[in-house]
């Protein structure tokens, strides 16, 4: 098998308020060393303070933390701009370009904003076709699923990666991903019996990206879900790394 390394789509560096017993990764060296145990050679990382304190603070810290760590690819959190605490989308995308950041994340549940177009539509439209959006959810419940469906169909050029899903979602995620070809799934929380195998057949292995949810979650479980999945080596390689490479390549900078 020619799998050479994994690309983690969902991990954070920095101190967190509620780490597990093994703690958090206070710097990039610690994160990289831990990931190397699992053959994770690259990671699309964000800073914990971007979600637990404020995106503006965390995004800045992320660039400092990942400087001279070429295999840690930075991703920034975004907020709607209406309160003045975050730049307008047009300016934000220029900042992304200037910093070389090729992925954006939102945590609407945790950071208490709506994803309706009158709140977030300008951001979505600006990112569409330019930068993939990693949408972190608390649960794939009814309103969240309906909103993902609405946003993905309203903004068909916006590539949306659903992050932090949980178990028991097949009846929702299957038609959602079939309806919206611009929706992807990050597998770190997808703790479903034969789940990766199932979704590979139902919607395609080209729609999933491997993630760990470090530091909050152990790597072993999502890693084993991918490695033990009854899929062919090309599919495993795609989920493990090349799908994310392809997704990030859409940002031209």
């Amino acid at each position: 098998m020619a799998v050479t390394e994994l690309f983690d789509a969902n991990c954070a560096v920095g101190m967190v308020s509620r780490p597990g017993p093994a703690g958090a990764f206070l710097n990039a060296d610690e994160l990289e060393a831990h990931q190397a145990r699992f053959g994770i050679g690259k990671a699309l990382v964000y800073h914990s303070l971007a979600v637990e304190e404020h995106p503006a603070a965390g995004n800045e810290l992320l660039l400092q933390a990942t400087e001279s760590h070429g295999n840690l690819i930075p991703s920034w959190l975004a907020l709607p701009h209406h309160t003045g605490e975050f730049p307008k989308p047009a300016r934000f995308i220029e900042e992304l370009r200037s910093a070389g950041v090729r992925a954006v994340r939102i945590f609407p549940d945790q950071q208490r904003f709506l994803t309706d177009d009158w709140v977030s539509g300008e951001l979505f439209e600006t990112l569409a076709g330019q930068v993939p959006l990693f949408w972190h959810i608390d649960r794939l419940d009814t309103p969240t699923a309906r909103e993902l469906h609405r946003v993905s169909t309203t903004h068909p050029d916006l590539q949306i990666v659903i992050c932090d899903v949980d178990k028991m979602i097949n009846r929702t995620i299957t038609p959602l991903m079939r309806e919206a070809p611009n929706i992807w799934l990050e597998t770190g929380g997808y703790r479903t019996h034969r789940g990766i195998e199932y979704l590979s057949n139902a919607v395609g292995a080209d729609r999933m990206v491997f993630g760990t949810k470090l530091p909050w979650q152990a790597v072993g479980p999502p890693h084993a879900e991918l490695m033990y999945a009854d899929i062919d080596d090309d599919a495993r390689r795609a989920i493990g790394s090349s799908n994310l490479d392809r997704l990030l390549a859409m940002a031209a900078w």
Binding site: R37, F38, R191, T192, H193, R194, G195, A218, V219, G220, P221, P222, H223, A224, E225, M227, Y228, A229
Partner: peptide
């Protein structure tokens, strides 16, 4: 997933 917990203990 049995695979999920296998990874949990094995690692």
């Amino acid at each position: 997933g049995q695979t999920w917990q296998m990874g949990n203990v094995a690692h």
